[in-house]
């Protein structure tokens, strides 16, 4: 029985299980890595009591989350309050269905599903994820979560525009929205070089989109006591946490695919397909994740009006300019057929 004879749904199921397992493990350890790296940057060792070098800390955290009481405030809308974390999580996980992690020599993508409009799918699902945060704050029936979710909605709308604009430059250069084509187009030159402005805007907006410091106004412990998840506890809070980190991983993978050449090796000539390609991919995504942590321990949080100013008055015009320049350049010197 050859591989192609296995029913497609079984193949997809197995692939999904593998990807989900890997992604959840990555989540657990990216959280530990964040605490460790931030600790080092602040001259402290970070978690180091559970297991060697604190390696079992994620397991300890998970056990703690599971056994904590799951509270629902009296004023909350019970159904939406309980549903919201799942919206966040499902959207965060759904994206991984189409992210290709590497490609075989014959060009087969290592992903669960291969969608032609891959990048559009990712943005669509990612945008729905905002509903999780917005509804969580709305349904909590309390003032700080509401403020957090209102902020989140405004911030998402402002930064999603610039983010999409910055990615369109890459799409123009490739002439395709399929992630496989985008990576293959970067065989000789990563798009980070011709699209350096787009890349910078993508990095900034990606941080804002995932509600991470210095754009974490949605959570903003100091002003909003945790923002949209103030009222959440136990496993539901954990789900939001997982969703946030999965979004970070998604955005890192996307940056790798769109700008950093995906599974192509940094130096042309080195092997890049198959498992070696997977290694390159992981390395690049991990570097991006490290940058996230580095950013968090370096910059203080934005003031809200500055965040809005920055999004609308700086990022959006620059992204538009970049888009126009790219379009003109491609029209004048067509590089692909």
């Amino acid at each position: 029985m050859s591989v192609s004879a296995i029913p497609i749904w079984i193949v997809v199921l197995i692939k999904s299980a593998v990807v989900l397992g890997v992604v959840i493990t990555t989540f657990a350890y990216s959280m530990l890595a964040e605490r460790k790296v931030m600790g080092w940057m602040q001259l402290r060792p970070g978690p180091n009591r559970v297991g060697p070098w604190g390696l079992l800390q994620p397991a300890a955290d998970a056990v703690k989350m599971i056994f904590k009481e799951d509270l629902t405030p009296d004023t909350a809308d019970p159904l939406i309050y309980r549903l919201a974390p799942f919206i966040s999580l499902i959207c965060a996980m759904g994206v991984f269905a189409i992210i290709p992690f590497s490609a075989s020599a014959d060009g087969t993508l290592w992903s669960v599903g291969n969608v032609n409009a891959g990048i559009l799918f990712i943005f669509a699902i990612g945008s729905i994820g905002v509903y999780g945060i917005s509804l969580a704050g709305w349904a909590s029936g309390s003032k700080f979560p509401l403020l957090g979710s209102v902020r989140s909605t405004a911030q998402m709308i402002s930064y999603e525009l610039s983010m999409t604009m910055s990615v369109i430059g890459v799409l123009i250069l490739t002439g395709s929205t399929a992630l496989g084509d985008i990576v293959n187009a970067q065989l000789r030159l990563w798009f980070v070089i011709p699209q350096i402005i787009g890349f910078l805007i993508y990095v900034i907006t990606a941080v804002a989109e995932t509600n991470r410091a210095p754009f974490d106004l949605v959570e903003a412990e100091t002003e909003l006591v945790g923002g949209f998840h103030t009222e959440y506890s136990g496993l539901r809070f954990g789900l939001f946490f997982i969703a946030e980190y999965l979004n970070m991983i998604t955005v890192s993978c996307l940056a790798t695919l769109l700008f950093l050449g995906g599974w192509n090796s940094p130096i042309p000539g080195l092997p890049s397909g198959g498992f070696v390609g997977l290694g390159w991919f992981i390395l690049k995504a991990a570097a991006f994740l490290f940058f996230y942590i580095w950013l968090r321990s370096t910059l203080p949080r934005f003031r809200y009006d500055r965040l809005m100013d920055f999004g609308w008055k700086v990022l959006l015009p620059v992204a538009t300019l970049n888009l126009i320049l790219t379009a003109v350049a491609v029209a004048v010197w067509p590089t692909h057929a």
């Binding site: 080092w40 940057m41 602040q42 001259l43 402290r44 060792p45 580095w294 321990s297 370096t298 910059l299």
Partner: peptide, 21 residues
């Protein structure tokens, strides 16, 4: 100023920690 901030945090990663276990 941004670069200085980033280089400061990065170099602190390799400094000796004053932590006593």
């Amino acid at each position: 100023a941004l670069m200085r901030g980033f280089s400061t945090t990065f170099s602190y990663m390799f400094k000796k920690m004053p932590t006593i276990q």
